[in-house]
């Protein structure tokens, strides 16, 4: 704006005199914006550093204070007792059970769906089938939880009856299995599509049927992409919070069967944050640290697999 003002007011001579200044202003703008872009680019680094710093600085001393073994392997979570005990082993086991259940439910269906979408699906149909699968990823977890609460929980309760209230590992596994479907389908099918067509044609030329070619050639060739999708799904499942809280029962004890309720690491944080103070609050942060470490390991594994694929 300033530049054009000067240009409009000035005579030809003045404009010539000002010209170098205009050039400088321009240069100044360029370098200022260059710095702005650079700083914006650093925000994600700063954010990760801050998150790690706050989590670990607050969480690690707490774990040391409670005792590493007592915290990680203790089976008693009684934060409000006069002599409180903070053992999160049941929650770790709960998270692992629920995640494993989700994988057992979600991976076979997801993988077979991906095979169909990548290799069997007519193009016309693909256009209609893919959007619903993608939209499955867009449904908020709170809505999933609500759906689980009013549909899956009563079904489990009616089918298995007895003392179970329907809030169980099984319920959580089924719902989480549904929630990870879009992740698995999306990534696996693009991995399968990326396999060179010549592999498939070669298998056909050797007399394999279409299905056999897909099973024995395409799927093995796409295995790192498929594995990456499963790992990403594990990350999703272990970090899922709101849907789990509404359907998993949340009892902090070691489950005896898949019809028992469990509490996951994520649920532990949300359930007790509202009234936790002092060491209790710190213990919840430490629970978050354990979850965070799980996630970082999963990310590391994911990066290792995808970067290997690129090579």
């Amino acid at each position: 704006m300033i530049i054009t003002d000067i240009e409009n007011k000035g005579t030809a001579g003045a404009a010539a005199a000002i010209k170098p200044k205009k050039f400088n202003l321009h240069r100044l703008g360029e370098s200022v914006m260059g710095v702005v872009f650079f700083l914006s680019a650093c925000v994600s680094i700063i954010a990760v550093v801050l998150i790690c710093a706050f989590m670990f600085v607050r969480g690690c001393p707490t774990i040391a204070e409670i005792g590493v073994a007592d915290f990680l392997l203790g089976t008693e979570w009684r934060p409000l007792n006069s002599t409180p005990s903070f053992g999160i082993f049941p929650m770790i086991i709960g998270s692992i059970y629920v995640t494993a259940g989700a994988i057992i439910v979600g991976v076979p269906i997801g993988l077979l769906t991906a095979v169909f979408m990548a290799k069997f699906c007519p193009r016309k149909l693909y256009k209609w089938l893919m959007p619903p699968i993608n939209l499955l990823a867009g449904i908020p977890s709170i809505v999933y939880g609500f759906f689980g609460m009013i549909v899956i929980v009563p079904i489990i309760r009616n089918v298995f009856g007895g003392d179970g209230r329907g809030n169980s590992i099984l319920t959580a596994s089924i719902l989480l299995g549904i929630m990870i479907l879009p992740t698995i389908v999306g990534m696996s099918q693009s991995a399968m599509k990326a396999v060179p067509e010549s592999y498939y044609e070669g298998a056909l030329a050797l007399g394999a049927t279409h299905e056999r070619a897909v099973c024995t050639v395409i799927i093995p060739a796409a295995r790192s992409g498929i594995l990456a999708s499963v790992i990403l799904a594990i990350g999703r499942a272990i970090g899922e919070t709101m849907a789990i809280i509404m359907i998993a029962g949340n009892q902090p004890r070691l489950p005896d069967s898949i019809l028992d309720g469990v509490r996951t690491l994520t649920a532990n944080i949300v359930l007790e944050m509202s009234y936790a103070t002092g060491l209790h609050y710190d213990a919840l942060i430490a629970t978050g640290v354990v979850l965070f470490v799980f996630i970082l390991l999963i990310n590391l594994l994911f990066n290792a697999i995808t970067s290997k694929k690129e090579r």
Partner: peptide, 28 residues
């Protein structure tokens, strides 16, 4: 080198579950 770090951290950020963001937000 910075680009490598930015890539790594954005990937990390996209993998962090929302409850960890909630915890961090509460602390920070």
């Amino acid at each position: 080198k910075l680009v490598k770090w930015i890539r790594l951290t954005t990937e990390t950020l996209s993998g962090i579950p929302s409850i960890i963001y909630g915890l961090f937000g509460n602390m920070f």
